[in-house]
Amino acid sequence: MTRFGWFLGHEEWQPESLVTQARRAEEAGFDAVLVSDHLQPWVDDVGSAGHGWTTLGAIAAATRRATLVSAVACPLFRQHPVLVAQAAATLDRLSGGRFALGVGTGEGINEAPLGRFPGYPERLARMTEALGLLRPLLAGETVRRPDASYYPVPSFRLHSPPLTGVPVYLAAAGPRSAATAGRLADGVVSSVKDPERTGREVVDVARAAADAAGRTPPRVVLSTFVVLADNDDEAIRALRPWRGLRTPGRLSASSPEQLRQRADRMGREAILAGYRRIGEPRQLLDFCRSLVDRLRPDMLALQVAAPDDGAAPERFTELVERLRQRL
């Protein structure tokens, strides 16, 4: 059965607003809230960048039943995997066992300012090693990796372990990370624009890799980004904090000023072409139904941008109820 989540973006909202949105999402019937983790926003003229772990702690106190998901933290450079495990375990305890850890190989805008941001092969090798620390630590085990290449640990265990086993989901936009998720993580996280491509290059790959390794099928956590606006002018206004997100070379860029300049050179039409626009929530129903039918996710989260603070989770309650009736 697919559960439904609401995505909370630190890149747009100040942390106190995200805590309020999380509470409203839970009251509106969403099963989970997914919280981004950013050191900097996507552009430098608008946006925010609160501390993800701190916000999650406040959300844990402000909610009662919703699952909390980091979407996603990078445990490779500015955050050591042992510290990420400690934060995840603490959140699990503070939330009464409601936390799931989403991790990813990072982005230059968040990692480069505090150190180096190498190419994908090294980042994937680091992630492979990091997962070998995160999962046993969150299972309450003592880890000994004195000869590890990137994160040597002589001997360590968490002294405030999780109340329950915290699942670890690996973000994937393509087949290499998806295969790693299937082999080494508890699930895969991905953002969906085209369900067929995501199915072919991410979900199917992760499931096949888990099967080949003799593991249980990975949990599949998907999100889709939509703009709720009546016209292009409203959509551009809603996308101001996000216009650097889908610019060329955005993964390696280290400055939100760079991304703003690239986005503004692209122009309105190119920015709008990168996002699905709807005039009202019910217009998303057929797309979400096709996504659920094709990909069979364990969780589907909605990320919504709207002008004038119009992205209220309660506006999507009927959509979620209709989707649940279909399942």
Rank of each mutant, 00 (worst) to 15 (best):
A89D: 05
Q79G: 04
H159T: 15
A172H: 01
V153G: 02
A88S: 14
A148Y: 07
P118E: 06
L184Y: 02
D186C: 10
F77M: 12
A185W: 01
Y169H: 10
L124D: 08
P81Q: 08
T90E: 12
L94S: 03
G108V: 04
G140H: 12
P161H: 05
A148I: 11
Q86L: 10
A148L: 11
S95L: 12
L184S: 09
V166R: 00
E107V: 07
L134E: 01
L94E: 06
P175C: 07
L83Q: 13
L91Y: 05
L101P: 01
A172P: 03
A125I: 04
G108P: 00
E122L: 09
E141S: 09
Y150D: 01
P121T: 05
T128Y: 01
L184E: 06
P167C: 07
F99I: 03
Y150C: 04
Q79S: 14
E129M: 14
S149F: 04
G106E: 09
A88T: 13
L184C: 08
T90H: 10
P175Y: 12
A178V: 05
R144E: 14
E141D: 15
D186F: 00
P113V: 05
A179R: 04
G140E: 13
V189K: 04
A85N: 08
A171E: 00
P113C: 11
L131Y: 05
L101E: 04
P162I: 10
L138Y: 04
P162D: 03
P146M: 12
L76K: 05
Y151C: 10
S155G: 06
L133E: 04
P152A: 15
A73V: 15
S149I: 15
E111S: 05
C74N: 08
R176Y: 09
C74R: 00
A171R: 00
L158P: 00
P175I: 05
T105E: 10
G115V: 09
R144M: 13
C74P: 00
A181Q: 01
Y151G: 06
A87R: 14
A87S: 15
G187K: 00
V189Q: 11
D186G: 15
V168S: 03
S155V: 06
P81W: 08
I109W: 01
L131Q: 10
P121C: 05
M127E: 02
E129F: 12
P154H: 12
D186K: 02
V84P: 03
E107S: 06
G132D: 12
V166C: 03
V82R: 08
G119K: 11
P113F: 09
F117T: 06
V143N: 04
A89Y: 08
R157W: 09
L170I: 14
G97F: 10
A173F: 15
G108E: 03
P113T: 09
P162Q: 06
G106F: 13
H159K: 12
L101D: 01
R78N: 09
T105D: 08
A171S: 08
E122Q: 14
Y120E: 14
L124K: 11
L133W: 02
R93Y: 06
L101F: 03
L94T: 03
Y151I: 09
G119C: 12
T128F: 00
R176I: 05
A139F: 06
P162C: 13
G108D: 02
P118N: 08
A100M: 14
L114W: 15
P136M: 11
D92Y: 07
